[in-house]
Design a protein around this nucleic acid. Structure first.
Lengths: 325, 325
DNA sequence: TTGAAAGCGATACCAT
DNA sequence: ATGGTATCGCTTTCAA
């Protein structure tokens, strides 16, 4: 059995209170006593039990993070940004993936019992679930998800980058645009669409239910028989990559005949030469970690909503002129 | 303040022992009493404290996982496979990324204090650190890392797939091979090289220090001025992708003039049409989770070493004949 | 500076 | 079927 604080106290001939003080070098302990305790602790290979400590301090010293998935760089990077700051702050990170889980809401509530606060990415759990957490007094920060009343949130900017992206297309002479996606499903997409509309007068909306490659590849068929627009502005990269592949397979000149843009800058976007918008993924995670820490230590009580700037990444799917890696 | 088990006991007019029984529906409790307790618990919105419970049960009900990174699908998938099984087993998952951390060993030791067992991926921590954990009685499973004496390990098969990959090249008429990588840095690479050598008599070794895209692109230069082999067998996909890009840029016919293969099947490999070897990443994670659970619950004490089969993925970087998605 | 003792919030053994 | 009570291993007053 492992040594406990009492074993060390006995070995060193002091009280457990003193051992505790030494182990956390909190209050002042006379050097002689301190060394005596340290020696005893070393001799017994004493390592304080986190369980005992946590109960006494009534804190987990751990943060949670809930995400849909880790495939693709998006959430993975956010998680890493979060973890690195959490580690700096001396807190462990608990993860919960909701992919393929039907009891996501219950799982999140359970997770909340095992940490001092958590970050929720995207549309992983219902708004009611988030509100229940908040009502229960849990420390919560939302990331990449529309703010829910009174809860902290961190998001990437959409509108301004959508405007920049659109202006980029107009500058290249592409005026007839088609926005591919469904603004009603996500506030992010809605903002992107709004941004595009603010700059372009000639933008048509093509609704698609699933924002994945299959959907992208599929909808190209409609346009091959009809007339192609000057550019497809897709709600995300998956969609754009699907379209790109299908268009190229059909022998359509890109970016000559039609230009294609995505959103997110997933790794494959680079290989496919897709012009897109990159989000500050690590910063989303680290910012969330800091906001959460403020809530946990009680520095702040008024909710905050941070919006982080994004970056337009120009590649060959829109212009051969200024290609970037 | 939140209600404790004592509040509920008082409210329901029973002992805390009975409340505990009801909350965990462990032993039999008379229905009438049970309902009374349930009502009281509901009225007080009582949720058992995990901290109290964990100390009493002397277990964290959490597993750890240590990985170098989450960029790229490899570790991310392993983590997901691990998390899903851990969740099934009712355990939370703590993560620790060693990327950009100089105190990895210390961090891992600390993490071991906060969970009932942990999985270590790749070369994240030193062998001494692993041995220290084992000596301390921690439950440890290694993944994608050569086994350390007496510690469980799960790895992907290398040799046989390397043989299959090589045979595939020979079948296509590619006899003069160059293996790119450094077998001395990693047992995985060493096994892959050995597998290649067992099938091909004409394989040259090209040492590179970094197994990344830059290195791959860079070393192509050497061959453009000299003679190209029939095929480059790269130690991993990054390397292969770097070479592929550079070769194509130089106008070299692939797979006609030279074939290129990688290892890992990262997402970009698919877009680049790279023939490679896919590892069962999720299975690595889930297998590790099960092995770890056996250690934790004490079902097993003799160390095990699992080797999971891999899969050859043939794409256009070796043959246009049987292209796969 | 140090120690005694009271929690922290559960679980679990032993009676009843 | 229940209750009383002793842990679990630490932190933290409060005195001395």
């Amino acid at each position: 059995m492992r040594a406990t604080i009492r074993d060390v106290a006995r070995e060193a001939g002091v009280s457990i209170a003193t051992v505790s003080r030494v182990m956390r070098d909190s209050e002042a302990v006379r050097p002689a006593t301190r060394d005596k305790v340290r020696a005893a602790a070393a001799a017994l290979e004493f390592v304080p039990s986190q369980l005992g400590r946590q109960l006494a301090e009534r804190r987990h010293a751990a943060n949670g993070i809930v995400f849909p998935d880790l495939s693709g760089p998006y959430y993975a990077e956010v998680v890493l940004g979060y973890e690195s700051v959490a580690a700096e702050l001396g807190r462990s990170v608990l993860i919960l993936s909701t992919r393929g889980r039907d009891d996501a809401d219950a799982a999140v509530q359970a997770m909340a019992e095992r940490c001092d606060g958590l970050v929720i990415l995207g549309r992983t759990v219902s708004d009611e679930s988030v509100e229940r957490l908040a009502a229960r007094g849990a420390n919560v920060v939302l990331v990449a998800r529309p703010p829910v009343g009174g809860v902290d949130a961190v998001n990437a900017e959409n509108r301004i980058s959508a405007q920049a992206l659109t202006q980029h297309l107009l500058d290249l002479g592409a005026h007839r645009l088609v926005f591919v996606g469904d603004p009603s499903t996500s506030p992010d997409v809605a903002e992107r669409f709004a941004g595009v509309q603010e700059v372009s007068h000639d933008v048509e909306l093509h609704h698609v239910d699933d924002l994945d490659e299959t959907a992208g590849a599929h909808l190209v068929g409609d346009y091959l028989t009809r007339a192609l627009p000057d550019a497809f502005v897709c709600a995300n990269d998956e969609l754009a990559l699907g379209m790109l592949g299908r268009l190229r397979a059909a022998g359509v000149d890109i970016p000559g005949r039609v230009k294609v843009t995505g959103w997110d800058d997933v790794m494959a976007a680079r290989y496919a030469g897709l012009t897109t918008v990159r989000q500050p993924m690590r910063a989303l995670g680290s910012t969330a970690a800091r906001l959460l820490d403020e809530l946990i230590v009680g520095t702040r009580s008024t909710p905050r909503h941070e919006v982080l700037p994004t970056q337009l990444v120009i590649r060959t799917s829109t212009t051969l002129g200024k290609e970037h890696a």
